[in-house]
């Protein structure tokens, strides 16, 4: 297929921004691993803000690409690639993306970024607990942590969702995204 110069430019621009998002997500992923952590595995999931942004601007595929790249590159940076910590983030990430995809597909335009973020946080928690009980700890008593994790997911989900919503609004003002419409958010609710 022969594409016009404009289309090629648009593609390059998309890739550059995707790379920037991934870099940011990796930064947040690493930052979170460095933060003092009173309870193991309690992560605010700041990187999910970028996943939501990618979902909003580039759609489901963008979100998956961003999340998976973020986890692999981030783990490589921290130095726990293919270790138990990596396994936990990987399964958390996949769980988050699965639930967010389901939410985006099933609820289409009714759902906003906050709702998607909540689904992501819940999927993250469930994915982590599942893999933790199956492989890492191998004891079902780990599920006793589920309520605490769900409450945590509620709080971090809302905060991340609002942050993502603000970020997307801000980005859409940028000339690079002037052609994009916001995929998920209040703008489409009343429509």
């Amino acid at each position: 297929m022969i594409s016009s110069a404009d289309e090629q430019l648009e593609q390059i621009r998309q890739r550059v921004f995707m790379a920037l998002f991934i870099a940011l997500a990796v930064g947040l992923h690493t930052l979170e691993a460095l933060l003092p952590n009173p309870l193991p595995w309690f992560r605010v999931g700041l990187a999910n803000i970028l996943a939501l942004t990618a979902l909003s601007i580039y759609g489901l595929k963008g979100m998956w690409v961003l999340s998976l790249s973020r986890i692999f590159i981030g783990s490589l940076l921290i130095g726990n690639l293919f270790g138990p910590g990596f396994l936990l983030s990987f399964c958390g990430g996949v769980g988050a993306c699965l639930l967010m995809s389901a939410g985006a597909l099933l609820l289409k335009r009714g759902i906003g970024l906050v709702g998607l973020s909540l689904l992501g946080a819940t999927g993250h928690v469930c994915g982590q607990l599942l893999i933790a009980s199956l492989v890492v700890v191998q004891h079902q008593s780990i599920w006793l942590l589920l309520p605490a994790f769900l409450f945590f997911a509620l709080i971090s989900g809302v905060i991340n969702g609002l942050a993502a919503d603000l970020l997307v609004d801000y980005l859409l003002k940028h000339p690079a995204f002037c052609d994009c419409r916001k995929g998920f958010g209040r703008h489409h609710v009343e429509g």
Binding site: L106, L107, L130, S133, L134, Q140, W143
Partner: peptide, 23 residues
């Protein structure tokens, strides 16, 4: 739609609970 989602989520929760690995 939210009701359908509630049902779906509850189902997922229940499923993940019943499928939880037993020692």
């Amino acid at each position: 739609r939210p009701l359908a989602l509630i049902a779906a989520l509850l189902l997922i929760l229940l499923l993940s609970w019943s499928l939880r690995p037993r020692a």
